[in-house]
């Protein structure tokens, strides 16, 4: 069920809620699975008292991982050729995150059809927490 280029329109937008209420437990799950045990993300005492933050906050890579779902749910599995983001704002427990994937263009690379996507994820205040791009093969 891969995407077909004929069915894609430049400017088309797909929005997907990634998480309604980001929990500290999910951040802990990501720490365990990824191996990034930076206590800034999982240890509230450290984050507040040693590092000077209001509390723990998400790994940027958790947000990038959550956002990937919005891309792959739409373009299909194993079709990405590139995916990149800048981390723009911190993501905190309780945040609601929505990904917005916009078709930036369609092109042909040596007979391989590609779709270029702009990818942003917004928090409940409408702030971009990550912004980047993805490219996927299309039929």
């Amino acid at each position: 069920m891969a995407l077909r280029s004929a069915e894609i329109a430049v400017g088309e937008v797909h929005e997907q809620v990634l998480v309604d209420d980001l929990t500290r437990t999910q951040i802990v799950q990501y720490a365990g699975a990824s191996g990034d045990y930076n206590p800034l993300h999982t240890d509230d005492v450290y984050a507040r008292e040693a590092a000077g933050y209001p509390g723990v906050f998400s790994h940027g890579m958790l947000v990038m991982g959550l956002t990937a779902r919005a891309v792959t749910d739409w373009v299909g599995d194993g079709r990405l050729t590139r995916y990149g983001v800048r981390f723009k704002s911190q993501v905190w427990p309780g945040d609601r995150l929505t990904a917005r994937v916009t078709v930036a263009g369609l092109r042909d690379d040596d007979g391989v059809g590609l779709v270029d996507l702009d990818v942003v994820t917004l928090n409940e205040r409408g702030e971009e927490v990550i912004a980047g791009y993805a490219t996927a093969r299309v039929d």
Binding site: Y46, A47, R48, A50, Y53, V85
Partner: peptide, 24 residues
């Protein structure tokens, strides 16, 4: 990270160390 004290090392990195700016 914290144990008996907020950090197990006497001088934690100021600002909490390195953060991620971009990934491609």
């Amino acid at each position: 990270g914290s144990g008996r004290t907020p950090s197990g090392v006497s001088e934690p990195a100021s600002g909490g160390g390195r953060l991620h700016a971009e990934q491609h």
